[in-house]
Nucleic acid binder design. Structure first.
Lengths: 260, 260
DNA sequence: TCCTTCAACTGGCTTGAGCCAGCTGACTGG
DNA sequence: CCAGTCAGCTGGCTCAAGCCAGTTGAAGGA
């Protein structure tokens, strides 16, 4: 089979993983292709099944393959990223298309967008959010709006928006799940908070089990977390949103002037 | 020990992982604390050592713990992120401090910054880079500068900059490893390319084995990849840099006007 | 023709055993 | 007092075996 000429110092599991990885990178195993079964691999390399299994779990950790119970292990097809642009807050875009940038981006990929507001509640803001809203972290009541974003009924990101109660008042923002034409930033504008600046703090990490389940994520895929703050023309923060998105389906795209 | 009242439907490995995760989140196991040894866990839960091992590998995949051969498994201490701001291209900052934003950020954390230009070569640009530079992807000779960034001698990110040969000419950019006061963007400015706009395309993924080794990354930590394009005042792209940074040590921070 | 059944595949998870290699601290001999 | 040794800890990796649970397609009965 694939025996190397002489003693190969690498550990068996690494060797199997390296060989498979090379096959994938070379294109021998195309995107979506099925890997040999664990039992076949073990036989090919003359190892125990657990060793072949270990090799596959290495590749899983690298995000290269996905296993499907009862079917096999497949090269993870990498779908094009949804590029969320910095223009997604643009008033012009909002007016021209009437569609949210998320919907535009998903449609562009030939998939069907869906958004769902799962809850609107009032509660105490988390510390980092209160800080960014300029509120006392001990006493910061906010409206919390939880939004889920789907492409072809597959969840791809979650956004939780926090709005100080003083800002939301008794407007639709404080209670309505659907916000009507122009969506949330149009409502903010009506309340006297046109969005003029944004700050976005970005990090990447592995999902926790809840996120993994909620977003239906395979192992070996990180999430991108964006802590977004919206400012009005006086640079007053009026809204913070924490986005958590699947790293294999989403990306960010900022285009901006160098200030100063 | 930690036996639940009656039959627990969860699998043993999941149960151990869940318990440990809960301990960590509760703070029972503080940052940096040592977990029970694999053999102890197995004994506590009445399972085989391999099962305890599996539980730990789950937590490793989530980035919660790091194992150290011969010493034990420890709760991964999460260090503060280096926040690379959108102001890092600001001419004023460049002038005022004379320090690069990376050095400022690292110093702010009480660590010692170091940067190292590992190579300066001429080669064909990768396709995505050529595209962003507005060059024919078949015939796009560029200067390639590979920079490594360290904090306390620990590598935290890599940046590979591509400059069209027509832009670099025979300036220091084309060959010198050290670029002198004001660094790279000061040199671009001298060549008639003051940086006026940037575009940054951000994604997150698991590191490949090379990156893992090069950056000394533990398992369960993603990388952030930033494809950065610099534009002059006529919106002509003159430079593309691909940053790959450890996701557990770096973050991004964009503060910008909503255009339009 | 259509549906059911079922055998033969797939991965998921566990067991219990063994050997190796890195680390640490205590003990020992100079 | 110091340096070296070594026992006993740690995780790293593998083996061989077994049972479970999804999936698939072919064989067979209504």
């Amino acid at each position: 089979m694939k025996q190397e000429p002489e003693s190969d110092k690498r550990l068996p599991s690494r060797r199997i993983a390296d060989d498979l990885r090379a096959s994938i990178e070379r294109g021998d195993l195309a995107s979506g292709a099925k890997l040999p079964s664990e039992r076949d691999l073990a036989a090919q390399y003359g190892t125990a099944r657990n060793t072949a299994r270990e090799a596959i779990s290495i590749l899983q950790g690298e995000g290269l393959v996905v296993a499907q119970h009862g079917r096999g292990v497949f090269v993870r097809p990498q779908q094009p990223l949804m590029r969320l642009g910095s223009n997604r807050y643009s008033r012009r875009l909002r007016g021209e298309t009437g569609l949210s940038p998320f919907r535009i981006e998903v449609t562009k990929q030939g998939r069907t967008p869906k958004t769902e507001c799962r809850s609107v509640t009032k509660e105490q803001a988390p510390e980092d959010v209160a800080e960014r809203l300029g509120l006392d972290s001990g006493n910061a009541t906010v409206v919390r709006r939880e939004n889920w974003y789907f492409a072809d009924d597959e969840p791809v990101q979650v956004g939780v928006t926090y709005i100080p109660v003083e800002v939301a008042g008794d407007s639709p923002l404080a209670s309505a799940k659907t916000l009507g034409k122009g969506s949330i930033y149009a409502r903010f504008e009506e309340l006297g908070y046109p969005i003029a600046r944004i700050r976005e703090e970005i990090s990447a990490r592995m999902p926790n089990p809840d996120e993994m389940a909620g977003l239906g994520m395979p192992p070996g895929v990180p999430v991108i977390e964006v802590l977004h703050t919206g400012f009005d023309e006086q640079r007053r923060p009026f809204e913070v949103t924490r986005f958590v998105m699947r790293g294999d389906l989403n990306g960010l795209d900022y285009d901006m002037p160098v200030e100063d």
